[in-house]
Design a protein around this nucleic acid. Structure first.
Lengths: 333, 333
DNA sequence: TTGAAAGCGTTACCAT
DNA sequence: ATGGTAACGCTTTCAA
């Protein structure tokens, strides 16, 4: 059967208190007994039961990660980088796919709370904030990542989406484009990107292509294709399209090519995220890069520092996007 | 503070035993008290502590998933499908990236054992099987997925890799190719695919392009590029390449195009996995499809049935790959 | 139908 | 330096 501290204690002729102390390097134990106990633990292949110690108030060393969709490269790369840092810091991740579905979000939150995770990293939509609010009032550590809630005080590491949109628009406008379409889902971050985008347009006395509207298909590639077709078939076809993520951009490029357009000659397109698929796309996609690795590290570090109460003030880390030039945009002639 | 069964019991004027019973729908409780207790639980917003109940021998409802790399589309899609099924069955997933590194694998195993996960789903390499063997002898449920261990009796849901290789070779040979290159990492599943591949070649008195050798870069796209360059520059250039995953194939296509070859006119390429990136590749990739959704469901179902001891005999589910024709292969002329 | 009490495997305080 | 023991929050007999 499972070996417990009792077994170790008996075998080593000490009390369980002593065993517990050598386990945690706490209290004062003579070098001699420490050696002996450790020895016995090896022999018996003793594995401490974390459930019991967590029940006594210690950490579970487990973080809940709520993410919209692991099959989306941006999120899987983000999850990967968070897990990497977690591993270094000895935390495990319970990863949950929410599909931006509020009911799923809430269900996961409540279930993981019952499992007493040490904290939550939220990368999901959470258009309804009440449950998140609840976590906070219960003093459960929460960090938001890749999703901003400017209206409400919570720890977060986010991208400066406004700047992202700004950069994209600036690049396109600098290339001489005057009729630009945008493709985006109706998410907070995208509204920010649009704000940045509009800012540049306004500076240049330009306006968005009037066919713009938010898309809502879950399959991003398909969404990109459909919206691209709509833009291309309209009687006032844009010369450039800014897609709010790389998958959308991939769809745009696909459809544009199928409709006989040359990228970037007939249509410039810039994506967002800089996931690993950008180099697969033909032509390689010019995109606004999110520093995914960094983001993962920052969010995990922030989480852990909150858990350890190293900082009581809420803090917010904002990372900057950057423009990565490849081959999908071109100066207008 | 945290509300426990004691609080609920007190408030409802019953014993904690009664509360526990209504919680688990066990024992016989009068409808009246059941109602009352449930009512109080609502009011107090009582959340049962799973740590405590797991400590008493109940399940943790958590499964450890060891996977090589979440940033690889095949694995993230697989993880996604496993998690989906887990969610339906009320299990959470702790996801760990192993990078095919045996030390990491073992470390995760031991840590998750301490957390008393109900079982392990292993999608990682595990070239050293001792720790897996150990799990089995400790009667901890284990299922292997997307990775076969024919030599050793363990529950598994795997792809018929031999058939996968067979299908790829058959397709290429049917198109008239006689000089075919292969690109693969040295993994068990790839050795099987090669076996199936060779089988077809032998049937047709053909032999593999002699420049073949296993690759081992971790960056698959890069690996595909490098190996493709090698094949293309050799003085006996293959007319077709079988890449053992889609990423590798993407690299091949990229490099081939950079070197001025037309796909599929000058070089046919078939991939493996049928991940979502295939439709982004130009031209769309002909590939051997793994039924990823199915695989995720099967593995989770198998896991749960083992946990619930619905089957004591080891079982092994083998799924069949299929050829998906797209535009990257062409009849030789 | 309900409740008392004995665990589950730890930690931590207080003695010794 | 070491050990006894009361928690932690729950489940599960066994009595009542």
């Amino acid at each position: 059967m499972k070996v417990t501290i009792y077994d170790v204690a008996k075998e080593a002729n000490v009390s369980i208190a002593t065993v517990s102390k050598v386990l945690n390097n706490s209290g004062r134990i003579s070098e001699k007994t420490r050696k002996k106990v450790k020895q016995i633990m090896k022999e018996l292949n003793y594995q401490p039961n974390m459930l019991a110690s967590a029940l006594m108030g210690k950490q579970t060393k487990t973080i809940g990660l709520l993410i919209p969709d692991l099959a989306n490269p941006f999120f899987s790369e983000l999850a990967r980088s968070i897990e990497d840092r977690g591993n270094e810091l000895d935390y495990h991740l319970v990863i949950c796919n929410t599909d931006y579905n509020n009911a799923k979000e809430n269900r996961y939150l409540s279930l993981l709370k019952q499992k007493r995770v040490d904290g939550f990293i939220l990368a999901s939509g959470f258009e309804k904030l009440d449950k998140v609010q609840e976590l906070i009032s219960e003093e459960i550590p929460v960090v938001i990542v890749a999703r901003d809630f400017p209206m409400f005080s919570v720890n977060a590491v986010a991208l400066d989406d406004f700047t992202g949109g700004y950069l994209a628009a600036k690049h396109l406008v600098d290339l001489g484009h005057k009729n630009i379409g945008v493709i985006a889902r109706d998410l907070w971050s995208n509204r920010e990107r649009l704000r940045g985008f509009h800012h540049v347009l306004a500076e240049n006395h330009l306006t968005l292509n009037p066919n713009f509207q938010f898309v809502n298909e879950v399959d991003h590639i398909k969404a990109g294709r459909n919206m691209a077709a709509k833009y291309i078939h309209s009687d006032n076809r844009p010369t450039a399209i800014f897609a709010c993520n790389d998958l959308l951009a991939a769809g745009v490029i696909q459809m544009a090519k199928e409709l006989g357009l040359d990228i970037p000659q007939d249509l410039s397109v810039v994506g967002f995220d800089n996931t690993s698929i950008v180099s697969i796309i033909e032509p390689p996609l010019t995109t606004i890069a999110q520093p995914i690795q960094n983001m993962g590290k920052e969010v995990m570090d922030l989480m852990v520092s909150i858990i350890n109460e190293e900082k009581d003030a809420k803090s917010r880390v904002t990372l900057l996007p950057s423009l990565v030039l490849r081959k999908s945009t071109k100066k207008i002639t």
